[in-house]
């Protein structure tokens, strides 16, 4: 068989056709794989987000349950027991006359028990919804809470506030969320850290308000990732998420635990405007 110039051209054309076909097929396979990979990544990301939301929801529900349990326990242990004691006292009392010495004692005891009940109920009510927060704002409520802890001698807390004006503009929901966060942080410090000192500082930086919290306790004994999965931290995270605030656990350079919460003022304005 004689190969002509035309045949040579045909061979080149065949090669070009095969080459183009392979290139196009490779390009299509690549784009299919790429699109499917992107889809898989997005699905994984969405699933992780859903799982995280579920975790937060679970933490919120658990927290509510814990709160109910605590209220129930407080009512049972303090108010319930005291009222039972009062009932027993009334039942046992057999007066002989108004001038009876034991009648005076009975009156006195009854009054002190009633006073104790009033005090207990006030304490429970205060824990449920701090009055100071409602009437005097976030800074006063934190200060009051710190004062109570300082008085107990369990922890010495220093409080610095350089954003008084911005804090007073917070709506009640934001203020309550931030108050609960600090309450939880202080609670964690008292319960787990073994710290003797803690400090809270609030300042304005650009369009944000920075809340810094630190103590001189044991610090994180687990990784920040594992720490974030704890119920207390999830409670904090879900509260901060609700008010569009973010947080960073500060690196454990010196002894102790530290967290920085950033609250965008714009979010406060949006929340305030509904």
């Amino acid at each position: 068989m004689q190969i002509t110039n035309n045949d040579n051209t045909a061979v080149l054309i065949i090669l070009a056709m095969v080459g183009v076909f392979i290139l196009v097929s490779a390009f299509i396979i690549y784009s299919v794989r790429n699109q499917n990979r992107l889809l898989r990544q997005r699905q994984e990301f969405q699933q992780a987000q859903i799982a995280h939301q579920k975790e937060l929801l679970r933490a919120t529900i658990e927290m509510q349950e814990a709160e109910r349990k605590r209220i129930g326990q407080d009512l049972h242990d303090d108010v319930g027991t005291t009222i039972s004691g009062l009932r027993l006292l009334i039942e046992m009392f057999k007066p002989t006359g108004p001038e009876d010495e034991s009648f005076k004692e009975f009156t006195h005891s009854s009054k002190s028990i009633i006073d104790k009940i009033v005090k207990d109920v006030r304490n429970i009510s205060h824990n449920l919804s701090p009055t100071t927060l409602r009437y005097y704002g976030l800074a006063s409520a934190i200060m009051e809470h710190c004062g109570i802890i300082n008085q107990s001698g369990k922890l010495a807390i220093t409080f610095e506030n350089e954003a008084e004006q911005e804090l007073s503009a917070f709506d009640i929901n934001t203020a309550t969320a931030l108050y609960r966060v600090f309450e939880e942080l202080l609670n964690n410090t008292i319960k787990h850290s073994g710290a003797s000192r803690a400090s809270i500082s609030i300042k304005k930086e650009g369009d944000d308000i920075l809340f810094n919290y630190s103590d001189n306790g044991k610090g994180l004994l687990v990784s920040p990732e594992a720490f974030k999965k704890g119920m207390g931290m999830q409670n904090i995270e879900s509260r901060l998420l609700n008010i569009n605030a973010t947080y960073v656990i500060l690196p454990d350079e010196s002894k102790g635990f530290g967290i920085e919460i950033t609250y965008p003022i714009l979010a406060a304005k949006v929340a305030a405007n509904g």
Partner: peptide, 9 residues
């Protein structure tokens, strides 16, 4: 255009 579509190819 469709490389970033959120559905299976």
């Amino acid at each position: 255009k469709n490389g970033n579509e959120e559905k299976k190819w």
